[in-house]
Nucleic acid binder design. Sequence first.
DNA 1: TTATCGACGCACCAATCGACGCAACTCGTA
DNA 2: TACGAGTTGCGTCGATTGGTGCGTCGATAA
Lengths: 314, 314
Amino acid sequence: MADEALSAGAVARRLGVAVTTLRTWHQRYGLGPSEHVPGHHRRYTPADLARLETMRRLTAEGVSPAEAARWARQAPDRTSVDTVTRSRIRPPGRDGGGAIPVGRAGPAARGLARAAMRLDAAAINETIAHTIAASGVVATWETLLRPVLAGIGDRHAATSGLIEVEHLVSRCVSEAFAAASQANAPSGPARILLSCADEEQHTLPLEALAAALAEAGVSYRMLGARVPVAALVEAVNRTGPAAVVLWSHTRATADPAQLSALLAAPRRPLLILAAGPGWRADTLPAGVVRPVDLAEAVSLAMAVRDSLDQSREA
Amino acid sequence: MADEALSAGAVARRLGVAVTTLRTWHQRYGLGPSEHVPGHHRRYTPADLARLETMRRLTAEGVSPAEAARWARQAPDRTSVDTVTRSRIRPPGRDGGGAIPVGRAGPAARGLARAAMRLDAAAINETIAHTIAASGVVATWETLLRPVLAGIGDRHAATSGLIEVEHLVSRCVSEAFAAASQANAPSGPARILLSCADEEQHTLPLEALAAALAEAGVSYRMLGARVPVAALVEAVNRTGPAAVVLWSHTRATADPAQLSALLAAPRRPLLILAAGPGWRADTLPAGVVRPVDLAEAVSLAMAVRDSLDQSREA
DNA sequence: TTATCGACGCACCAATCGACGCAACTCGTA
DNA sequence: TACGAGTTGCGTCGATTGGTGCGTCGATAA
């Protein structure tokens, strides 16, 4: 309690920085108490403290102080590592159970599954394109494509058949996403890098993310499947993205060392997203964010884009 | 104070070139910050950046750097002028850099290779889409994409680098083909089945074929990569295609038994195409045709389609 | 009295500087 | 066909710049 008005010394001690540094941050970056009369003592409110903690966390992770300050200044509260993140956006119902996911996913999913069983590429294409146009990429992925793909995958695992169905549908989904990405190709510098983990072959979710970003007008770079760590780091060094999304579908490809390599890169990205069911939360290095679904990944990426829009950096 | 002051590194990252290249462009072509004290850091204003973007855009289209620089240096005018002029001006076609060997494949290929080295997805997409629209899928594949991809592959084999470049370009090509396929999606029953051989992962040439077929108004079914023999035969039995194209990129995946299985299928296809450099002509079963290039594959497939237009078979 | 204020300065380090050289492409010439 | 000449992007090297955290000093608020 008693956190109504912290003095400069108390804040400095709590953050682990020198008092003079607080003053420097105030006059250099504008990160000071909300109201402060020059000459008088600084009184930090909890909101001011939260901003300073963001600043300290980012700089501790290696982000350039100027950039971290810009981020902290115009992000009211976003502590990515903790529990706050997922309260923002919550798309409608998702569940993991159900023997046949297609059953409870709506008539469109049922129709798509039937077309898939018929290997009817035209009908598949039409259904997907129509749904994307009507409901957007994110909703299409969550409520139509993921259930159907999961259903096919389950049945394939059970009967070891249907491989050709899976291939055909994957192909059609891929084409639909590609078409959607091309249709509204965003402009501007790409500050977001999308990549699969090493040896990871599943690209569909990443393609969904790419299409969703394009739909939202966010530029990105998509590297695709099976990207070795060296190539990923090389790409980061050469393009200096603000955020990197690394997808891992299965545990076998989710080597946390890949994330550590990103964290240790000379030009470390501001935000690193470990996406996909492969990653284990307890093995992720600090400073890595793990989005729970497509919508969260999109919103995080957009936040980074917005905060860095007109930034010049050191 | 001006709020605009991009550092050299920031500009380089935004343009997708190396920092040293910016310095080279400054001292060789005079494309630097308006005011710059030798010895001090360069600070690029938006006007300087605009000039550099013109430079980058022109070189990405295959214009010789010297010429592009001359153009960028005295062009107060922004974009939008070049659409007419770019095909007209053909300065002495020099090129260089630790770039991708493209051979004599034209300025567009050179520009594409340069954009690829920069990991500039936007420029890559634009070039490909523009060329497809102007020259068609087949020509784009033969004269633009295949040379560039082969160049990247060679370089990758030699230096074991550039993996990220290869991935990004593949991704963009794939997207472009997918978009082209979707744009003019043919109607009618699909009597042609496209598939990779078992364990074969390269799908790009097959995607080119698919896009070319779509462009020609021919329906097809595309199964994609790594199709096991059983799944392929199953698909043939269920859809009864008139022609099957089986792609093999390397000898390791070119098992002739796959073709024999197709020949022995209950509903044997009229035409079986063994496409790709993996197949050895002397090991192919009788009754299998081996097209030499994309154009031949397209014309064969179209011939089958035409021949079946009036003669329906069980 | 004591903690903090504003101003100034210093040490550290990443980013950048200029210079040089390499590799690879294209073109002209033999 | 082969080879030298010119062009060009970029890696490397030692030196320098400039951003950053923080200590110090006289003055002032609490």
